[in-house]
Design a protein around this nucleic acid. Structure first.
Lengths: 128, 128
DNA sequence: TATATAGTTGAACACATGTTCAACTATATT
DNA sequence: AATATAGTTGAACATGTGTTCAACTATATA
């Protein structure tokens, strides 16, 4: 996770600029590279089936690692690795009680992102 | 893009269920696999730096492939490949005028998704 | 103290994917 | 008709990344 591909910033490009004014205006309007990098990393967390299911499950109820493993039919190890990514980005928090670690969502952001995502899916493709 | 990893659905898991009632409730509340799969694919489009920049640029102005290539310092080929993915998911539309192909956003969904994303980034990490 | 279970971790592996390259189409210009 | 430019496409390549496996820690129980 969280790796950039090489962006070749001092760029010789294989084309003449068609609309230099447009390019200049947009260049000024673009967020800085760090913000865009962080934003891409945020979406990466939702871009994997396993993590997406974990997030959805936690948006329903607090669950321990075993619960999630059984729900998704995967090993505790696989789940734990993904939970680590989600923890590092502040999407989930956890609480240890005896041997069991309970995970839950940190805040409402995840639910909001789900909502917006579903809106797109169900607006233009099937159904409509 | 758009490949699923093996989900091992008829699962022997290496753990006993801790809270079977929780698992059952959540299982019922989960969207069907196809919806989650589509949702993950949607977020994948935002999860790459190049595509993210293209989308942001197009959220500012209509641009041709050359404009985008110069803006991002990449080859037309690289840009074109990414635009194809964005087209297939109905995020961008295009119009050909002579030799030039102009791309723009299909609707407001992209801007909405950006907005929600930035909200998360600037709420819990840096700043405050 | 010995054993069992919940969970984490790092390395290895296999697969997914973004970029490059070369060849191609389509339109415009000479 | 020949040439130049905008853009697309498929294959090859290199890199990124999710899962597995084995070893480990921590807590609870016998």
């Amino acid at each position: 996770m969280f790796n950039n591909r090489n962006m070749n910033s001092d760029s010789l490009c294989d084309c003449g600029v068609i609309h230099e004014d447009v390019v200049n205006r947009v260049r000024k309007a673009m967020p800085d590279n760090e913000s865009l990098y962080n934003l891409a990393n945020l979406y990466k967390l939702f871009a994997d089936n396993t993590r997406l299911k974990i997030l959805w499950a936690l948006s329903c109820e607090t669950m321990c690692v075993c619960d999630l493993a059984v729900l998704l039919g995967m090993t505790k190890s696989a789940i734990s690795h993904q939970l680590k990514s989600l923890r590092l980005c502040n999407f989930v928090k956890y609480e240890k009680t005896g041997k069991v670690v309970y995970y839950s969502l940190t805040d409402e952001h995840v639910r909001n992102i789900f909502k917006i995502g579903f809106e797109h899916i169900y607006t233009d493709t099937e159904i409509q």
